[in-house]
């Protein structure tokens, strides 16, 4: 089990963990600001982003894809804000209009482009391909100390590790302004905190995490990671620090259990093939959320909306 694990499962699990954490961290603040669905919007617009990148560069290399996806996310957010203001439209409807149109545009471009030379896999973009991120060059646990083997790590791993570290670093750095402006924006402004910049920064960080993660787990699953671990954490505690902690724990647990159930679950149940790891990770995070909704110590709503 040892060497096989290192080669086949270690990197996917690590990537899954890092992707989940990178998304869960900004997700904490998004759900507190009732902006949870911006993750939904971002996840849907990565498709047109990568298609445009592909059309412009002619390759399916990762860097242009990521830049394309990030660009699409930023354009989407700008468009949403614009039509919200110009048209006096509520945020949910504005998001719906923008991301469905952009998604349709992406599919159209995909169809129009000449994909005979390179294969652009829509399914991959949406559903990810975690299982395939294996570490060919590894032999067993000692490979972790072998520079040659390490050099041949799937590139997704150091990439997501870097993004995760970046997001974690930003969260730590901007902890106080984030906390204050999320709780009381007016007050934060009077303290001189640039709340608009924080808002934009948060969304961009979320977009970066989404884009980095989608390569591994696909875009749709990213929303699960934005929302479920932080939401479950919110039901566990009233303190923001503790909530972020819980969300990280839940994210890790979802990633590990999800991968294990996807890979080994069918085997345990008598099947032969694995099922989608990304889908299972989302499912597990949902189960955790469900349990939190039923048993979380701080799950009850307090206040006027409580009685109905």
């Amino acid at each position: 089990m040892g060497s096989e694990f290192v080669m086949l499962s270690l990197t996917p699990i690590l990537i899954g963990i890092l992707a989940s954490i990178a998304c869960a961290l900004p997700g904490n603040f998004l759900i507190l600001r009732r902006q949870a669905l911006i993750g939904d919007a971002i996840s849907h617009v990565v498709l047109p982003g990568i298609v445009v990148a592909f059309l412009l560069t002619g390759t399916v290399a990762s860097l242009p894809m990521m830049i394309g996806a990030a660009g699409a996310a930023i354009i989407a957010v700008i468009l949403i804000e614009t039509i919200k203001r110009l048209g006096r439209i509520e945020p949910g409807a504005a998001m719906g209009v923008v991301f469905t149109s952009m998604f349709a545009g992406g599919v159209l471009l995909l169809e129009q482009s000449d994909t005979s030379s390179v294969h652009l896999d829509v399914e991959h973009a949406l559903m990810g391909n975690l299982e395939s991120l294996i570490w060919f060059a590894a032999d067993d646990w000692s490979s972790l100390l072998d520079p040659v083997a390490l050099a041949a790590l799937p590139p997704e791993l150091p990439r997501i590790a870097a993004v995760c570290a970046l997001v974690a670093g930003l969260t730590y750095l901007f902890w106080r302004p984030l906390k204050i402006s999320t709780f009381d924006e007016g007050f934060a402004r009077t303290m001189g905190i640039p709340t608009t910049a924080i808002s934009i920064g948060l969304v961009i960080a979320a977009a970066v995490a989404a884009v980095a993660a989608f390569d591994a787990v696909g875009s749709i699953i990213v929303i699960a990671m934005f929302i479920c671990p932080p939401a479950a954490a919110r039901l566990m505690t009233n303190r923001l620090e503790v909530q972020v902690g819980w969300s990280t724990v839940f994210a890790v647990v979802s990633a590990v259990l999800g991968y294990v159930f996807a890979g080994y679950g069918p085997l345990w149940l008598g099947g032969q093939h694995a099922v989608s790891a990304a889908g299972m990770i989302a499912t597990v995070s949902g189960v955790i959320l469900g349990l939190a909704c039923l048993f979380g110590p701080q799950r009850k709503r307090v206040g006027e909306a409580a009685t109905d």
Partner: peptide
């Protein structure tokens, strides 16, 4: 629960879809 509606929508959306996948 104390979760807002957009969180509920996003959670159901992604989890059900993930399970569907």
């Amino acid at each position: 629960t104390r979760l807002s509606e957009d969180a509920a929508i996003g959670a159901v959306l992604s989890v059900f879809f993930g399970f569907g996948i």
